[in-house]
Design a protein around this nucleic acid. Structure first.
Lengths: 157, 157
DNA sequence: TATTGTTATACTCTATAACTATA
DNA sequence: TATAGTTATAGAGTATAACAATA
C-alpha cells in the first residue's frame, strides 16, 4: 500500500489502537465470567472450539496451532478436558507418536449449550442496529480477523 | 426492543457469535505475544492502561473495577509492577486505608513505546480500507464496546 | 536425525475466604 | 459495623527445556 500521508488515517489509528485492545480485553473478561457457569475456562473453551472447527480427528500439534498455544500447554488443557470426558485421545494407527483427539458427545452438548446462551446474549445488541449496519459490521470484523490471522497485521513485532 | 422475528437477524447472530469470540481470542493471544517483547503480561498492561485512563490518583478499588478484576488480583499485579518501578503506591491523606496508585515516568515511557508499536502495526490494515470504511468501523466498534460495558449485552448470564 | 508429545520447572493470573487497619 | 486492601490458599494457564518414543 501507499505511504502514510493521510491525516485522517493518523487520527483513526490512534483511536483504533486503544479501541481494539480494550475491546479484546472486555470480550475476554466477559467471556471468562460467562464460561464459569459451565465450569470452563477460556483456553478450555477455545480448545473445544478448535476441535469442532478442525473436525473430529485433530492431532495435538494441529490443536496447538489452531489455539495459538505451544504443545506443552495443550497437553495440560487436554488432560483436564479428558478427565471430565469432554474429549478423548485415540491412538493414531498411521503414526504411533501422535494421537487423534475427538469431541465426546458430552463435549458436543456442552458446546451447543454455550452457543445457545451466547446467541441469545448477542441478539440484544444486533437488534439495536439497522440490517445494513449488521451486515457491514460482519464484513468489517471478518476482514479484520482475516488480516490478523494471515499475519498481515499481527506478526510485525 | 422488538421480538426476534427477523430471519436476517437470526443468520447474523449465528455468524456474529463465532466471530466475536474468535476475534477476542486472537486479539488476546497476539497482544500477549507482542507484550512479551516489553516483559509485560496482558493483565499488567491493562492495569497500566486503566491507570493512564483514570488519571494519576486511582485507588486499588477503582483499578479493580476498571480492569474488571477482584481486589486480591489487583494487589498481586500492582505488586509486580511496583517492583519494576512502573507504578508506585502513595499514602492517601484523606483515608489511611487506601492508596493512591500512580504511573512513574518509566511506566509512562513504556506505555508510549507499546502504543507506538501497536499503531504502526494497525496502519497496514487500515490502509487497505477506504476512509468511509474506517470511520464506520470505528463507530461500529465503539457502539459494540459501549453496549458491552453498559451491561446491555454482557451481563445476561 | 527429526518429529510428536509429555514431563519438570517456574512464574503469573485468578477467585474465595480470612484477616488487619481504618472509618 | 462497614470498607479498603492484603494475605493465604488452591488451581489453571503459560513458556522453556529436557526427555521418551517413534519415524
Amino acid at each position: 500500500m501507499n505511504e502514510l500521508d493521510d491525516v485522517e488515517l493518523q487520527d483513526n489509528v490512534i483511536e483504533m489502537e486503544q479501541l481494539m485492545v480494550q475491546l479484546g480485553w472486555v470480550l475476554h473478561r466477559q467471556q471468562t465470567q460467562r464460561l464459569k457457569n459451565f465450569n470452563l475456562t477460556m483456553p478450555q473453551f477455545m480448545m473445544l472450539r478448535a476441535l469442532q472447527r478442525l473436525g473430529d480427528s485433530s492431532t495435538m500439534s494441529e490443536l496447538a496451532e489452531a489455539a495459538m498455544q505451544v504443545s506443552a500447554t495443550v497437553t495440560g488443557i487436554i488432560d483436564r478436558l479428558e478427565e471430565r470426558e469432554l474429549v478423548a485421545r485415540r491412538q493414531n494407527p498411521a503414526d504411533r507418536r501422535s494421537y487423534q483427539v475427538v469431541l465426546t458427545p458430552q463435549g458436543e452438548n456442552l458446546l451447543a449449550l454455550v452457543d445457545q446462551v451466547n446467541r441469545e446474549r448477542i441478539v440484544a445488541y444486533l437488534q439495536t442496529m439497522p440490517p445494513n449496519g449488521r451486515i457491514q459490521l460482519l464484513q468489517l470484523l471478518n476482514g479484520y480477523l482475516a488480516a490478523l490471522t494471515e499475519g498481515e497485521v499481527g506478526d510485525h513485532v
